[in-house]
């Protein structure tokens, strides 16, 4: 008798659980699951929208859209690879920069809250319309630092007395690989993008640093560890799980703002080629998810979980 009553209570709890998540569950099935199936379906079809009544007709064309996207379309492959390449350059830089900044902002100093407020500001200003105006004024303001790599070298060689090429040639003749130098130059010239993309990550890392027990640092200090050793033996392993969170966030974020999205939007709503647009969306999503899985698997293998 007693056991039966307990069971009904548990059943009641689980029913309440379903009630709590019901709005999301309906939305997820009605919009996301259905939309994903529809996108898959569209990519194999030729879709025509009925402009007056609002319905649409599908005409099955097999793999024609995929073949078109990969073998005929002039810019899709290039845009996709550029987006992926940009991401590969940006993600490690954003992660290390935001971790570095978070460690700096985690210390106690005067005016810390103002500085933190400034560092989160890029998230607020991160809107495509506003961003365009911002980029322009940044270029006007700073000349070199916010403009692209090409412009840096261009201005350097023409007017400003200090020649970056000279410095680069010096490093290259010192035996530092050219590819590495290119990466550094790219990184420096993209510093504006990197800073403005790392607001959320800095906040997450600050929270992560706060959650490390201070006793660990005390032990490290007593054992005579230097700041460098403390970072690699205590701080870094402890924030490792949050590096995964941040990497996932950064990759998703950089893909939602990449040119592939613009291209898919343009093809769908300006050229009315819905099937092709679905192919673009689907292929780029699959690439994103594959990269995510690869990266998460790669980091997870090296992650140490404290709890």
């Amino acid at each position: 008798m007693k056991k039966r009553k307990r069971l009904t209570l548990l059943q009641k709890r689980s029913l309440h659980g379903y009630l709590f998540i019901l709005p999301w569950l309906i939305g997820f099935i009605a919009f996301y699951v259905r939309s994903l199936i529809m996108t898959g379906q569209f990519s194999f079809s030729n879709l025509t929208v009925d402009a007056i009544n609002g319905g649409f007709q599908l005409e099955n064309v097999g793999f024609a859209n995929y073949i078109y996207a990969f073998r005929v379309h002039p810019s899709f492959k290039q845009v996709l690879t550029t987006s992926v390449a940009d991401m590969v350059i940006d993600v490690p830089l954003i992660i290390f920069f935001s971790l570095f900044m978070a460690m700096m902002l985690n210390r106690k100093f005067k005016g810390r809250s103002i500085v933190r407020a400034i560092f989160f500001l890029p998230v607020i200003l991160n809107s495509s319309a506003i961003q365009a105006a911002m980029d322009l004024s940044a270029t006007m303001m700073a000349g070199g630092i916010s403009s692209q790599a090409a412009e840096v070298t261009a201005t350097a060689s023409s007017t400003i007395a200090f020649d970056i090429n000279y410095l680069m040639n010096m490093f290259i003749s010192l035996g530092i690989p050219g590819a590495f130098m290119d990466y550094i130059v790219q990184a420096v010239s993209r510093i504006n993008d990197i800073i403005s993309a790392s607001g959320v990550q800095i906040v997450i890392f600050i929270a992560a640093l706060q959650s490390i027990p201070t006793s660990m640092y005390e032990v490290a200090k007593i054992e005579g560890a230097t700041a460098y050793e403390t970072f690699w033996k205590v701080t870094f392993p402890m924030v490792m799980p949050h590096i995964i969170t941040n990497v996932v966030y950064t990759i998703v974020d950089s893909f939602t703002q990449s040119e592939v999205v613009d291209l898919a939007y343009d093809v769908a709503f300006n050229q009315m080629n819905y099937g092709l647009s679905s192919v673009f969306s689907l292929v780029s999503t699959i690439v994103t998810v594959l990269i995510l899985m690869l990266v998460v698997w790669f980091i997870q293998k090296r992650t140490f979980y404290y709890n």
Binding site: G17, S35, L36, F42, V260
Partner: peptide, 27 residues
């Protein structure tokens, strides 16, 4: 709350975060 399929459904929430919104824009 504990209910059947909870883990699967919560994985779906994560999927929702990861899927870029342009994948579902047409539908």
């Amino acid at each position: 709350f504990e209910f059947p399929l909870k883990k699967v459904l919560f994985a779906m929430v994560v999927v929702m975060i990861v899927i870029p919104s342009h994948t579902v824009m047409l539908p």
